[in-house]
């Protein structure tokens, strides 16, 4: 499944009310490590069926970034039933991303 771009308007429906666990990638266009991580997140999105992958641009969605206390990017957060159950910051290799969503 391809990654879904999420804004404050559809965050509730796409992430918080999702029936599957959701991995959210908080990123920005000026952030080098985010751009390195992005293709890895896309690869994971293509390879897993039971987890939904969403992306939030923190420049466009400052409200969401603030709500989830984003202080460093890239930041990955895993949501289950509307709650953050796992998270990681900084670039990480594919195995680490897969590890995050296996919780």
């Amino acid at each position: 499944m391809a990654a879904v771009n999420v804004t404050k308007d559809n965050f509730q429906a796409e992430v918080l009310e999702s029936d599957k666990p959701v991995l959210v990638d908080f990123w920005a266009s000026w952030c080098g490590p985010c751009k390195m991580l992005s293709p890895i997140v896309e690869q994971v999105a293509e390879s897993v069926q039971d987890v939904k992958i969403c992306k939030v641009n923190v420049d466009d969605e400052q409200e969401l970034a603030e709500r989830y206390n984003i202080m460093s990017i890239p930041a990955l957060k895993v949501f289950k039933n509307g709650e953050v159950v796992n998270e990681g910051v900084g670039f990480m290799p594919r195995e680490k991303v897969e590890e995050l969503i296996r919780v």
Partner: peptide, 12 residues
């Protein structure tokens, strides 16, 4: 071990 580019990827 991580990603290509090394330290420079953090430099805008």
């Amino acid at each position: 071990a991580m990603t290509y580019g090394g330290q420079i990827i953090n430099t805008p």
